[in-house]
Deep mutational scan, measured.
Amino acid sequence: EVTIKANLIFANGSTQTAEFKGTFEKATSEAYAYADTSKKDNGEYTVDVADKGYTLNIKFAG
């Protein structure tokens, strides 16, 4: 089991951190699914992958 950390960075400057656990593939998939659901309210996003994929910096356009 691994933990994927997602740092969500919103257009207004606020941030949120979420953690997803499971296999690398499952946790990563859940992090992207979470970003997709947040996209409806926060606009399109880009992802900067860090820490060999264990940290995702997800920046929303607003």
Rank of each mutant, 00 (worst) to 15 (best):
N12Y: 06
S38F: 15
V49Y: 09
I9D: 03
E44A: 11
L56F: 05
T23W: 06
T23R: 06
S29P: 02
D51W: 03
S38D: 04
G13N: 06
A11H: 09
A18H: 14
Y45R: 00
K5I: 15
F10Q: 03
Y34Q: 04
V2C: 11
Y32E: 02
S29T: 11
N42D: 05
K21C: 10
K52I: 06
S29W: 12
F24A: 05
K39H: 05
N12F: 06
D51Q: 04
G43M: 05
T37N: 15
A6Y: 02
F60A: 00
S29H: 11
A11C: 12
K40Q: 12
S38Q: 15
F60R: 00
F20S: 00
G22S: 04
Y45W: 08
S29G: 10
T17S: 12
E19N: 09
E1Y: 14
V47Y: 04
S38N: 15
K26E: 13
N7F: 12
E25Q: 11
T17D: 04
F20T: 00
F20W: 05
F20A: 00
A11S: 11
Y54M: 11
A6C: 15
Y32N: 02
Y32I: 11
T28P: 01
K26N: 12
E19V: 13
I4Q: 01
T28E: 05
L8S: 02
V49H: 07
T55G: 02
F24C: 08
N57V: 11
D48Y: 13
A27N: 01
T37A: 15
Y34W: 15
D41N: 11
F60K: 00
Q16A: 12
T55L: 07
K21E: 05
V2D: 03
S14L: 13
K26R: 12
G62K: 08
A6P: 00
N42K: 09
K39Y: 07
A35K: 01
Q16R: 12
K21M: 09
N12D: 14
A35T: 02
G62M: 09
D51S: 04
N57W: 11
D36L: 07
F60Q: 01
A33Y: 08
L56E: 00
A18W: 12
T28V: 13
T15A: 08
F24P: 05
G22V: 02
A61E: 12
S38L: 15
A27R: 01
T3R: 07
A31E: 01
Y45D: 01
T17M: 11
E30S: 09
N57Q: 06
K39I: 12
T55H: 03
G22R: 00
T46P: 01
K40T: 10
Y54I: 05
A50F: 11
K40S: 10
E19M: 13
K59E: 06
T55R: 04
A27I: 03
T28L: 15
G22K: 01
A11Q: 10
S29D: 09
V47M: 05
N57Y: 12
F10M: 07
S14W: 13
A35Y: 02
T3L: 09
V47K: 02
Y34D: 01
K39A: 14
E1T: 12
I9L: 11
Y54G: 04
N7T: 12
D48P: 01
K39T: 10
V2N: 03
G43A: 04
A11F: 09
D36E: 14
E19I: 14
I9S: 07
V2F: 06
V47L: 06
T3H: 06
T46A: 07
S38M: 15
G53L: 03
L56H: 02
I9Q: 08
V47P: 01
G43H: 04
A61I: 13
A6T: 08
K52W: 13
A27P: 01
A27E: 00
T28D: 01
F10S: 03
S14Q: 13
N42G: 08
